[in-house]
Each structure stands twice: as structure tokens, then as C-alpha cells.
């Protein structure tokens, strides 16, 4: 029979895991957004080498499983003399991976704008920077918010993999609890529920943001 009575004493430990997961996710997402924006600019630039480089970057981080990326940074960085602690390594790793997806999301947003808009902006005399800042970016943000929210959810889920390099976040905490209590079903179910709540929160927040943004422009 299922027995959830051991759950109560475990709550403080679980809570610490949750905090770690949230911290990891927020840091990695911030990093991903920053790098993703830079990469997108390079991806859409006129310089061929830049375009090719960013394309390779995106293919690598999207094509290789995050688990393998984590292993690579954990085991191979020390081989070339980079000895960073596990936590920053993990954050950077997840952040880079998600930046590749964010690059593509933003690129899709920019490319979906009709060229006519840009042409009419040029004709009324706006410069390149103005066009990006006032014409394109506001629309791109509005268009890509749902995809970016989705990316945030994917990132929270992906953060569970960090457990394999020994960082004690929600999944790792759950593993420990499941093993020490001999109750894997109960504890993994609880972890699933916690992740589900975290992600539902993101999605509700996302809808709210989306509505706010949309209500301030034409429908």
C-alpha cells in the first residue's frame, strides 16, 4: 500500500531542494536570455562568418542531449585546465543550452514580421536602431512570449538532470529520500507534483504577462 506518512518529516529537505531548483532555473534562464539575444543578433547579421558560427553553436547545443553536455563540462573542462565548482558549471551549461533555443525563437519572431513594415519604417526615415527598438522588438516580444514561457518550463524540467553531477536540487533530494525511506513511488510522485506546480505557476504567470502585453496594443 502507498504510505505518505513519511512525507511530512521530509518536507524541510524537499523545500531546500525546491529552492535550489528555482535558483538554478532563474539564473540559467537569465543567462540564456542574454546570450540568446546576442546570438540572435549575430545570427541575423550580414556577416557570413558570424552567421555560420551562430548556426553551429545552435546546432551543437540543440543537437546534443543536455545530459551529455553536463557530462562534457563536468569531466572534460578539468582536462583543459578549467576547474570551476559544480554549481556554476551546471548553471552555465543549462543556460547555454537554453540560449540556443532562445536564439531560434527570437529569430523566428524577427523573420515573421512582414518586410513591408520595415520598408515603410525606412521610408518615413527611421534609422536601423530605431526600427529594431520601436518597430520590431515590441512586436517580437509580443509574438514570442508564449514560446519563451514554454522555454522557461522546459528549462525547469531540464534542471532535474543537474542531479547527475551531484547538485542537491529537487530531483537529487527526492532520490535520496526515496532511497532512505524505501518509498520510491511516493517520493517521485511528490516530486512530479512539485514540478507540476512550479511549471503551472510559470504558465499562469506567462498568460498574465501575455494578456498585459496584448491589452496594451491593438488586438
Amino acid at each position: 500500500m502507498l504510505d505518505f506518512s513519511t512525507l511530512l518529516p521530509a518536507l524541510p529537505v524537499l523545500w531546500e531542494g525546491v529552492q535550489m531548483t528555482v535558483l538554478l532555473s532563474i539564473s540559467a534562464l537569465t543567462l540564456g536570455l542574454i546570450i540568446g539575444t546576442i546570438m540572435c543578433t549575430a545570427r541575423l547579421s550580414n556577416s557570413t562568418p558570424l552567421r555560420i558560427l551562430t548556426k553551429l553553436y545552435v546546432s551543437f547545443f540543440r543537437g546534443v542531449p543536455l545530459l551529455v553536455q553536463l557530462m562534457l563540462s563536468y569531466y572534460c573542462l578539468p582536462l583543459i585546465g578549467i576547474n570551476t565548482p559544480a554549481l556554476p558549471t551546471a548553471i552555465v551549461c543549462v543556460g547555454l543550452c537554453s540560449s540556443a533555443y532562445i536564439t531560434e525563437i527570437l529569430r523566428g519572431g524577427f523573420q515573421s514580421l512582414s518586410p513591408g513594415q520595415k520598408e515603410s519604417a525606412i521610408m518615413v526615415g527611421l534609422n536601423r536602431l530605431q526600427i529594431v527598438a520601436f518597430i520590431e522588438l515590441p512586436q517580437v516580444i509580443r509574438l514570442t512570449i508564449p514560446a519563451l514561457i514554454n522555454e522557461a518550463i522546459i528549462l525547469v524540467k531540464a534542471s532535474s538532470l543537474i542531479s547527475v553531477i551531484g547538485i542537491v536540487e529537487l530531483t537529487r533530494v527526492t532520490q535520496n529520500l526515496a532511497a532512505s525511506n524505501f518509498q520510491p513511488f511516493e517520493f517521485y510522485l511528490t516530486a512530479a507534483l512539485v514540478y507540476f506546480i512550479l511549471n503551472s505557476t510559470i504558465s499562469v504567470l506567462g498568460l498574465w504577462v501575455e494578456r498585459r502585453i496584448n491589452s496594451r496594443s491593438i488586438v
Binding site: 518550463i153 525547469v156 524540467k157 531540464a158 534542471s159 532535474s160 538532470l161 542531479s163 530531483t171 527526492t174 532520490q175 526515496a178 520510491p184 513511488f185 511516493e186 517521485y188 510522485l189 516530486a191 512530479a192 514540478y195 507540476f196 511549471n199 503551472s200
Partner: peptide, 16 residues
């Protein structure tokens, strides 16, 4: 869609 695959797998394999 709201839970990590790793957790789904653990739930099925260890919790099954």
C-alpha cells in the same frame, strides 16, 4: 508536459 522526463522515468522504473 509539466514534469521532467527523468522524474517520469524514475516513477515508472523505481516506483512501478
Amino acid at each position: 508536459r509539466g514534469t521532467p522526463f527523468l522524474i517520469q522515468l524514475f516513477l515508472l522504473y523505481y516506483g512501478g
